[in-house]
Computed example of a mutant assay.
Amino acid sequence: MKFNFRIPKRLKYYYLRELVLYKAAFSQGNLVHAWHHLERAHVIGQSYPWEHTYAHWLMLKFGLAIKDVKEILGQIPRLLVGGVKSFVGKIPLGNTGGANVPPLRSMPLPEDIQVLFKLKM
């Protein structure tokens, strides 16, 4: 079994970049773009406990901010178990992390993120 502790520096740059873009879009009231960048941050960071958990924390805060009960209720269990699943390497690759998708469903990776994952070593 492979345990994931720390996101590689190269991936962390892109993860943090998505979070910056999320925060900028959210502060400008562009909720569609904000959510898009939050989903991308989730996909990039989902194999790493801290980044995965933090993405779900931001998704919960997003749901609270827009008063979306489905998102709020969907994020609570993801927030509680997502990081543990990352730690032991049991994540559904490509899952965007929102309450609009089943938490165990693997999803296709965007091409640019596929490239990042291939180059992370």
Rank of each mutant, 00 (worst) to 15 (best):
L79W: 08
Y54A: 05
I72R: 11
I66H: 02
I72E: 12
H56A: 12
L79K: 12
L80I: 14
V81N: 01
T53N: 06
G63M: 09
K70P: 08
E71A: 05
F62V: 10
L80P: 10
G63F: 00
L80S: 10
L80D: 14
L64I: 13
E71M: 01
K61A: 07
A65N: 11
H52A: 08
W57Q: 09
R78Y: 04
L60H: 07
I66L: 01
P77H: 10
G74A: 15
Y54E: 04
A65G: 13
V69M: 08
P77E: 13
D68M: 11
E71Q: 14
L73G: 15
D68K: 09
G63S: 04
H56N: 01
F62R: 03
G74E: 13
A55L: 00
R78V: 00
L80W: 06
L58H: 09
V81H: 02
G74I: 11
I76T: 15
L79F: 14
I76H: 12
W57Y: 15
K70H: 13
K67E: 07
E71K: 03
L60S: 07
D68P: 14
L64F: 08
R78W: 01
Y54I: 03
L58S: 07
V81M: 03
V81Y: 03
A55K: 03
L64K: 09
Q75A: 14
H56C: 04
A65S: 13
M59H: 08
M59I: 05
L73H: 06
K70Y: 11
E51T: 04
G63R: 02
Q75H: 15
T53D: 00
L79P: 09
K70F: 11
K70R: 15
A55H: 00
V81R: 07
K67I: 12
M59R: 13
E51D: 07
L58W: 04
Y54G: 03
P77F: 14
R78G: 02
G63T: 10
K70M: 06
V69K: 15
W57T: 14
I66E: 04
D68I: 15
V69G: 05
P77G: 10
L73C: 13
R78E: 06
P77Q: 10
G74V: 14
I66Q: 03
H52S: 03
G63E: 05
K61H: 04
Q75W: 14
D68Y: 15
D68Q: 15
F62H: 09
Q75C: 15
M59K: 09
K67F: 15
E51W: 02
R78T: 02
G63N: 06
M59T: 04
V81Q: 01
F62A: 04
F62Q: 11
L58Y: 06
I76K: 13
R78I: 08
H56G: 02
H52Q: 05
K70E: 15
L64T: 02
F62W: 06
I66W: 00
